[in-house]
């Protein structure tokens, strides 16, 4: 009895010591996350319930006043609509393109693979603001795109792309696709490389066309990674800011303003309203959470 107790005891302390060491290693990271990330989140939530001057915030009456106001705010509703327009058009187009590029570049007998991969990935290495400015210059009234289209007789006179509600949105979507397709392609490419080539060979012997191979072999096997990229892109698009500011400045008449851009305006451009801005950012959080939940439900059948 006492013997077994004695053999048990050191085992317990050993285990406890081990888990203690584990916790000790986790501690610095956890403390930093709680302090730098969770604490500000909680504070931001509290601020989202407040109103008043930035340095004299008070809890509003009723508490959810800021959230209530959001649905009456025409500019916010416009920005919401714009952001979802970007999301619905841009994300699917981009992911499909990324998938196509990835499967093209995954061909075994393709020459200069490295060069093509670099070319498609390169846009990702450009800074958000600088590429936005390049696009703005390209699509300016006397810019490159207009010059080409007019010279090629596709247009009679130059189009003021960025001063047209639809044109401005289209340019932003185009810019986003250019910037992010390569990024998503890399994810697909890396997981495609883990698919055994013999599967494709077997399929080809059975007479499967390249398209069937893509839809019946590649896509099902890539499902988890497609899900990840879809969630990341959705999240990124809902928080879109740089393009709206640097490319179109939200114009014309708020036709291309995004939610994050509007939040920035409420905080720093117009008379500051920290409480309302915080409430709007929590709205984005809720939307990202809901959309991700839906995507997980649809995409992950495990």
């Amino acid at each position: 009895m006492s013997n077994s107790e004695q053999t048990k005891k050191p085992g317990m302390t050993m285990e406890r010591r081990r888990s203690l060491t584990g916790w000790l290693f986790l501690l610095p990271g956890s403390v930093l996350i709680v302090w730098m990330s969770f604490y500000p989140m909680v504070r931001a939530f509290l601020v989202s319930l407040m109103r008043g001057k930035p340095t004299a915030l008070e809890y509003s009456e009723p508490l959810w006043r800021n959230y209530q106001y959001m649905f009456k705010d025409k500019v916010f509703l416009t920005s919401l609509k714009n952001t979802f327009t970007y999301l619905i058009i841009q994300v699917p187009v981009m992911l499909v393109l990324a998938l196509i590029f990835a499967s093209l570049l995954n061909q075994k007998d393709l020459k200069l693979k490295g060069l093509f991969r670099t070319c498609i990935f390169l846009p990702c290495a450009t800074a958000l603001v600088s590429y936005s400015i390049v696009f703005r210059t390209l699509f300016a009234y006397d810019g490159f795109i207009n010059a080409i289209l007019v010279k090629a007789n596709l247009l009679k006179e130059p189009v003021n792309w960025l001063n047209d509600p639809t044109g401005a949105k289209a340019v932003i979507i185009l810019a986003l696709i250019w910037r992010w397709t390569g990024y998503n392609m890399v994810f697909y490419l890396s997981s495609m490389q883990s698919i055994d080539y013999s599967i494709y060979e077997a399929a080809r012997i059975d007479g499967a066309s390249p398209f069937t191979q893509l839809t019946k072999i590649t896509m099902p096997l890539l499902k988890p990674i497609i899900l990840v990229t879809a969630i990341m892109s959705t999240n990124g698009t809902l928080q879109l800011y740089d393009e709206s500011v640097a490319l179109t400045n939200g114009g014309p008449a708020n036709a291309s303003i995004t939610m994050s851009h509007y939040i920035y305006n409420t905080t720093f451009v117009t008379s500051p309203n920290f409480g309302y801005a915080a409430a709007m950012s929590f709205m984005i959080l809720i939307m990202v959470a809901i959309l991700s939940a839906i995507q997980m439900k649809v995409g992950d059948k495990r």
């Binding site: 500019v75 008449a253 708020n254």
Partner: peptide, 29 residues
Amino acid sequence: TAITNYINGADLDSELAQAEDTVNFAMGF
């Protein structure tokens, strides 16, 4: 916003009324 919409064919009075609402909304916080 009102100016841009007016140039694109909207009615000036209703655009300005809406602009005034937007500002009043911001001031109402």
